[in-house]
Design a protein around this nucleic acid. Structure first.
Lengths: 323, 323
DNA sequence: ACCCTGTCAGAAATCGATTTCACCGTCAAG
DNA sequence: CTTGACGGTGAAATCGATTTCTGACAGGGT
């Protein structure tokens, strides 16, 4: 790798002048030309490492997500990337696998690599953002707003979404509506369950036998669905609180020959394959990409020095009724 | 951010000693203890930026993929990540969106950020890896092996897979078997089409009206399927060369009431939702995660100084017949 | 003729960690 | 008692780009 010194020598100027050429400072046209020629001849690329060390910050933002294989998070990542790239930033994706230690390690990396900022969909409920905050590293929470920390957040109205989805099942005439939600220490999970409870209690007293906490994953959804169907008085409908669990739940329903419309199903989150298969399911659409773009914009504002108090932005999610 | 100098001052030693404590060199127990205490008190984390500059290499590997929203590539990414993390490396995911300029930019970043190596699923056919190679940056190609460059590669036998899938359709008794493949400048696309041609010509002369080059994306698959169905003598079966295009193709078939078994469908790549919906499709399973782990292992070998001639590893992909 | 302003460019300090080099003891072998 | 080896330590050089400081020179106003 050629350095700025070699370019300077080749062009007959000082390293300072080379740096100025690349950063748009005042340099005479002849020297600028000489530098550019020398740089091209040597295939010179300035070292980002050295630049980052000197400037104490880089044009890289970290996106920390719990599951890279969940289409919701990849769509979100696309949103972040689109905005970030347009602003000249690179995005590095960090997959925590819902594990707090891994998450902490990545946050540490973000700090020690002088990254410009962090967008985080926290693993579990109580992520430790104190390190970032103590060092004034810009942070935006997305999808899940971490417990008790005062940072910008971009979320959806989980309770309203859960309520709307469940309400749709009520209106379709189902009597015993179950709920499969995520881990009880994840806010999005409990809030969606709260929405379910809202809609159900309006009709009849809530029965917590019909509420299952699973893990936001395919297998968890399948297991919960099996349990529910094994109840003495099994539910005739189910509200599933995320996309992956609904895949598991539908698989179990399919195995038992109880796919919709035999059973009512409402899902929080998108199922990309739904247009393919004519299963009547109520879907609460998640604006995944929009969550990403919004979070990225917020973060860029913080990076460029905005320091008003933390904001929380709540995006709407749209209900697509059975179809 | 506290530095090694502040820790040294707090512990009453020199910065060199602090460094030695963190890197396992010989230091007397008392001083080591003092350093550790000071470091903890200051919440010191060594700057990776400075470390990377000094060592001229970092424990980060770049994974460059064309489409982060394709489950195949995210599964591959998981594989890479698992191996890399176990070896103490972080993985940064770079999404090129099938765009050569974006790809080139990321490769440049990898170099100038002193990354340890690159795993690349090249966008299009002729990616420019010359910069990496000239600078001896370890590279492994995965899924797609770039045209004419001599680097390690981990691929599947695309032609054999395409042949097997098409053969299955032949055996199911279909007469006019079409093929929807990817861009003609992507090797995986042409090889899978070659496999299709192998199997079809064995039965009857190949008819290139039944061959469509699309874009490896959902909408491309849908458009190609529509065209095929509009032919005077439409095909009665189709081999689709990747997962996303098959979603588009199936959507069109569904709209026209021609879903399997009315039409024969064989797909190269996995469809996660298939267990859910009882559509009889022949699937050529892609060992996505395994591709990732294998590529990562190869790269790690190169990083640790292995410089035997470039190898190409061909993984098997398994056929799951209609079911 | 004098001063002031402004442009251009080089020397050198800086960012924070690693590592070579040099030095001091201490202990064992000769 | 000398010599050598070795463990422990600090001073200082190093990685490559940025930026401050400083000086040289040109042009405009009085």
């Amino acid at each position: 790798m050629p350095t700025i010194y070699e370019v300077a020598a080749a062009a007959g100027v000082s390293p300072a002048t080379v740096s100025r050429v690349f950063n748009g400072a005042n340099v005479s046209p002849e020297k600028a030309e000489a530098v550019r020629k020398a740089a091209k001849a040597l295939a010179f690329t300035p070292s980002r490492t050295a630049r980052t060390l000197r400037l104490q910050s880089s044009e890289v933002i970290a996106l920390v997500i719990p599951d890279i294989e969940n289409p919701f998070f990849t769509a979100l990542a696309r949103g972040v990337e689109d905005v970030a790239r347009a602003a000249g930033y690179s995005v590095v994706l960090c997959n925590t696998d819902e594990d707090h230690d891994t998450e902490l390690r990545y946050l540490d990396v973000a700090l020690s690599a002088n990254m410009a900022g962090v967008i985080i969909a926290a693993a579990g409920g109580n992520s430790d953002l104190s390190g970032l905050i103590a060092r004034k590293c810009p942070v935006v929470a997305v999808d899940r707003s971490p417990h008790g920390v005062d940072v910008d957040a971009v979320i959806v109205d989980n309770r309203a979404g859960g309520r709307a989805a469940t309400q749709a099942l009520v209106e379709q005439g189902f009597q015993r509506i179950a709920c499969i939600t995520g881990p009880s220490d994840v806010e999005t999970a409990t809030q969606r369950a709260d929405g379910w409870r809202d809609a159900v209690t309006a009709a009849r007293p809530t029965d917590d036998r019909y509420l299952r906490y699973a893990d936001f994953r395919v297998e968890g959804g399948a297991a919960a669905m099996s349990e529910l169907l094994a109840l003495p008085e099994p539910p005739d409908a189910v509200f599933v609180a995320n996309n992956l669990m609904s895949v598991g739940a539908l698989r179990v329903l399919s195995e038992q020959g109880k796919l919709p419309p035999a059973t009512g199903v409402a899902v929080f989150g998108d199922l990309p394959f739904l247009p393919l298969v004519p299963i009547p399911i109520t879907v609460v659409h998640m604006p995944a990409r929009h969550l990403g773009t919004t979070a990225a914009k917020l973060l860029l504002e913080r990076i460029t020095g905005d320091d008003q108090p933390a904001r929380t932005i709540v995006l709407r999610n749209q209900l697509t009724p059975v179809g």
